[in-house]
Nucleic acid binder design. Sequence first.
DNA 1: CATGAATGAGTCTTCATTCAT
DNA 2: TATGAATGAAGACTCATTCAT
Lengths: 190, 190, 190, 190
Amino acid sequence: MSQVQGDKWNLILDAAYELFGANGFYETKMSEIADRAGIAKGTLYLYFSSKEQLFAAMTKRDFEQFLEQIANGLQQGESLKERLSVAASHHLRYFYDRRDYTKLFFMMPNNDPEMLQEIQSFMAQYIRILADMLDDGGFTEPKLLAKSFVGILDMMKMDILFDPTFKEEDVQQRVVFATNLFMNGCMHQK
Amino acid sequence: MSQVQGDKWNLILDAAYELFGANGFYETKMSEIADRAGIAKGTLYLYFSSKEQLFAAMTKRDFEQFLEQIANGLQQGESLKERLSVAASHHLRYFYDRRDYTKLFFMMPNNDPEMLQEIQSFMAQYIRILADMLDDGGFTEPKLLAKSFVGILDMMKMDILFDPTFKEEDVQQRVVFATNLFMNGCMHQK
Amino acid sequence: MSQVQGDKWNLILDAAYELFGANGFYETKMSEIADRAGIAKGTLYLYFSSKEQLFAAMTKRDFEQFLEQIANGLQQGESLKERLSVAASHHLRYFYDRRDYTKLFFMMPNNDPEMLQEIQSFMAQYIRILADMLDDGGFTEPKLLAKSFVGILDMMKMDILFDPTFKEEDVQQRVVFATNLFMNGCMHQK
Amino acid sequence: MSQVQGDKWNLILDAAYELFGANGFYETKMSEIADRAGIAKGTLYLYFSSKEQLFAAMTKRDFEQFLEQIANGLQQGESLKERLSVAASHHLRYFYDRRDYTKLFFMMPNNDPEMLQEIQSFMAQYIRILADMLDDGGFTEPKLLAKSFVGILDMMKMDILFDPTFKEEDVQQRVVFATNLFMNGCMHQK
DNA sequence: CATGAATGAGTCTTCATTCAT
DNA sequence: TATGAATGAAGACTCATTCAT
């Protein structure tokens, strides 16, 4: 991506990621993003037509990285359980690495259908990746199962973001816990 | 509550609930809330000192109702599984009933520590209620289990909010699915 | 005056005097005046038709007291110099006693012709009292002389209001200084 | 000054001077200042961070001009009396030239310590200039004398501002009167 | 007379966006 | 491409005043 889009394009998205993430969409000013990117305010508009569009582009890049990485990671696992474990690890590490950008996960612009579309599309792809794995494993209702797994992981995220005593080691513990719980639930499904 | 706080107090919170819920904190104007409540703009400030404080009060009322209702509902269930089913049903129906006020759950004012505190406190109480049940059932790590269950339910919420074909009957299906998955997972935990 | 006007009328003016004096016209709220007077906001409007009118009434009462007291005081002095000394003393003590109500003398409502009229009328009367004395003493241009004397006193006021080390004893020193300077200036006028 | 600060900076201060002067701080709207300066409202805030700060900056520029001009003028006078006459003339002409901006001298924002500081600093400098002159002339208590002289002049200002029949010729008459009175008073001080 | 809840006109300030250079 | 000074629409909040009780 960075080779397709110019350096400055990514520079801006980096700045946007940090500021939107730390302060949310509405509490972040275009001028702050320009400052942090080390460019002039007007220059932002040479790359992005509006604040909303900048936010959407930043989100898109982030979503794509997330999906790309998880897809790569899943090629390593042998068994289903190992692959689920890899997915869980990726999901939770992602939030652990970004734990200072809390707001990102709560604050997006309202009434922006493009944004909503982006999120739904991301979720659909994420779920499909997991659902395909579960489908291969022979489970029924693979989509609902996939959503459930993601749900478990996403709730664990709360601890990462809000519990100041949360340590890196704890990530792995949650991974094991979530994977076990989920696998056991799946195995004994009627 | 309505007998403690004046009628107008609840009238305002009702209007705020609908508008903040539909459009989010930042895209909702105080004047709109006043209009919908059928009062003058200045009157809002006789009851709430700022937009932030109004939002916080609205959230608090909503959280309290949620917890109150779930606590009541749980007294009915006999077995653990029945009780979990009641909780799941309550959780999903809550979002189903409010499916037009989507934004509420994404859009809150940033940098408002009071607000953050409120959310964390709500989550802690919600988790505790479920964790206590699971603890009584003899399960280890009841808190992590409770969070996992809430996570599953909360991800099911996505379908409710974003899938336009989602019907009332589907709620019960998810309740059954989530409860089964979770119970099986718990039962076979090491 | 208090016998003519009701108790509450003076109660309100007392509160207004303190608050307008301490904070100025624009930074004083009608609600604060009501609070300090221990009455309801609406009650203010039974006695005064507007904030401006309340301010004007307060000023009028204060001006009248000032002039009344100075007129009384001047009956005691024997020589012109003694009488000037009495006037100076009265002027400076007035401000010394009210040194916490500084703002009063800077902050009055703009664009209020009634108010401007009030001030000019007060000044005219004050000057006339002194000018008559000087006229009796045989000085030419008694009005300009009177204004000059008041000017000297009023500038001394600045020390009283702004110099935190100013003590009560200093008042008398300024009285002597101002009177001497002025008398000497007058005596040797061509 | 205009070369240090940009053109627009002075343009805004000019507009502010006229409007604050004519109507006072509280009765002047930022939008009016922008209109008169021929710029957009938002532009004001590129140069001044708040209404208070704009007022303070305008006052500072005015004070500095006043002091600069009086310091220049005083270099011309030979004798002490001539120099006092120059000072008096400057003081009264200043107000005569600005007689339409009456309110300026009464209306400043309350509770603004920066503003109060500015005024006190100005007065201190003004007084010092005159006091130094008087000190050189061998008079005792030069500061009190200086204040007295300024007081006389400042009271003469009232006629200029409020007497509609006051003419330009009258300025010189007051200058002579005030200087004579004050010099005679000084000369015969014990 | 007294109250105080309700009103709504009024104003400062912000900030996304533009455009002449 | 890049700049950043200028714009002006928009909105939170205040507070003098009213009036039903």
